[in-house]
Amino acid sequence: MSCPKTPHLLQEYFAEDLSSRPGQEIQKHLDQCAHCRAELDLLLSTRDQLEGWQEQSVPHWDRGMELFRREHRSPAQEQGFFARWQWFPTAASFAMLCLMLFNTTIVADGDGVSISFGAAGGEAQIARAMEQFSEQFSEQFSEQQQLEREALVARFEARQDNNNVQLLEAVMQQSQQATAENMELVYSYFEQQRLQDLQAMRAGYQELLDSDYQTIRSLQQLAQYVSYDDTLIPQ
């Protein structure tokens, strides 16, 4: 058995807070009407089925980071540390220009530091400071120069002496070596000559002996011949 209130009542059921007055009326009807109650139970069961959804994790993606970084990249981030100091050369140039335009003079002397603007002030102070500075500088320079010169001469002399000693040592060593070499040469020459003479003398004696032996043989042969001839002579 159907109920004519079902569609409207169930539409309102999901809209109303059941603790409110309309909500309480809906609840009252549901307690009395089995058809509406059964229909509601089925709808709630369907809703429960949907609410059983388990949250799924998101697959990996870049979350628009590339786009974000590309569009929010500032020139300072692009160029790094030095980009932050780009203003410095311009500021320094501007400061120098100001100093020149206002003819700024900064003087540091024994009395302290003074800054003056314009051409009128400070010229006498500059001249005085320059004079003092040049005097001090020349005195200091001459003293320093004298000391340096003396030190240089002493260093030169020491080096020269050292060079001379080294040269003499080298010459002596050279001459000693040369003498020794010459003596060795003379000795070897004489030795060689002596050996040659000895050989020549031996050869001479041998030749003399050979010629003496030949002479004896000739005489023996002559003597034999002579004795043979005597036998041929008829007695």
Partner: peptide, 26 residues
Amino acid sequence: ALKGSAYAWEKLVRRYEGRIYNLGLR
């Protein structure tokens, strides 16, 4: 994120990406 913080943007996306993705699935 409007001042250019990539970290803030990423965190903001992470807070809502799950709900939006699941909405998309359904």
